[in-house]
Amino acid sequence: MSNDSQKAGDKFDQARRGFLEKLGKAAAGAGAASALPAPAWGGASFLEAFGDMFNKQYKKMTRKEIDAALSRIRRRALRQYGVEIDCDDTPPQENVVFGYAINISTCQGYRDCVHACVKENNLGRDSQVEYIRVLEMDQGTRNLEEADHYYDPDTVPVEGKYYLPVQCMQCDDPPCVKACPVEATWMEPDGIVVIDYDWCIGCRYCMAACPYWARHFNWSQPKLPPEEINTKTHYLGNRPRPRGVVEKCHFCIQRTREGGQPACMEACPTGARVFGNLLDPDSEIRYILENKTVFRLKEDLGTEPKLWYYTD
């Protein structure tokens, strides 16, 4: 990028920033008025909608703009679902890169993780998006084409089968990030590949690029029962998503950045899931990577997944 054009871009940014600040003030006024009953057309003021429309990409926003966007998200949730949510953008921790290891000799195929994830991450209940797929595999093969995604026996594990949970691998060289034409998706310093749902144009090229089928699209407005909404949300994580954008597993960024476990790990009754900091030599995950037999799915594609599988 040449210096000149950089400057031109900056100037544009400044102009817009001024404009948006004014807008923000107006929107704040509208917010104050929201104590009154919401008007019949849903309560989105023209300015509010306008502010949504000209949101900048997350990484380009100033602190002030981020705060404005966060409060817009809160108001939007209130409008759409009548629920007061809390949305923040907790930054990554220093010297932390997240990794995940799944013990496939322990996994029993219960799918508890799948459903905990749906609840935690405010996934549309009708749209059937699930970040985790547990594959039922024939013992003696790792051919994904032989896998059964929809297994439904009376009890699991079924004899002769083993179970392989698949989700976003948070690749260290993510092909989806490379693919995105508008930089709506990127890898954060703690290794989580995130999506700015307010920037994604919904071209779905990243879905074609992902070798793990980890990316999912909101074909319709996701439906959330208000009473089931998880109100603790993150800008790059589980905040309610609009229609027409792509989403995927983000290692429960709203929990893990604050030291919590991902919901899938917490829900797993077998302890097959181990999450931790790859940069901490004393962490459990490092012990596993250095001492157990591990493998990664489709490693040959060179995407450097940060989710490993291991066996006892």
Partner: peptide, 25 residues
């Protein structure tokens, strides 16, 4: 084919963010 045609302007360099030359799209 776009999910959000209203955001097409995100592709315009400088105003939006254009992932060139990384993205084949």
């Amino acid at each position: 084919d776009l999910g959000r045609p209203d955001r097409l302007w995100h592709m315009i360099p400088y105003i939006g963010r254009f992932n060139f030359p990384g993205s084949l799209l």
